[in-house]
Amino acid sequence: MIQIEYFLFVSAIMMFAGIYGFITRKSTLAILLSIELMLNAADINFAVFNRLLYPNGHEGLFFAIFGIAIAAAESAVAIAIMINIYRQLQNISVDQLTKMKW
């Protein structure tokens, strides 16, 4: 059986790759993808903890399912906003979102 550390290692790498991507990417769509990576890292954690440490209940699995559903809803709203920005700027790079600062 695979040790729990391996799973947690994968999810931690996904989490911090997501944070790195969120900070460095220029396109808002790439930023959204990074956020999905972070959310999925948390979902993996829930499933793994539930399966390997606390196999008597289903709390973690349910949390992961709800997490996926909420992430889908969030992406839908975020992409709608991106489309709105594209209509006005013909561009969705974060470099362009500079009208309001300081």
Binding site: M15, G18, F22, T28, I31, L32, I35, M38, L39, A41, A42, D43, N45, F46, F49, E59, G60, F63, G67, I70, E74, V77, A78, I81, M82, N84, I85, Q88, L89, L97, K99, M100
Partner: peptide, 29 residues
């Protein structure tokens, strides 16, 4: 345009903070 830009800034950071929070909750669990 300002409304859309404000919404983009809000939703990206709200999603980011939600995923940080979710990861924290998974560790607590």
């Amino acid at each position: 345009y300002e409304s859309a830009e404000a919404a983009a800034k809000f939703i990206l950071l709200a999603l980011f903070s939600a995923s940080l929070l979710l990861y924290g909750v998974s560790l607590i669990y």
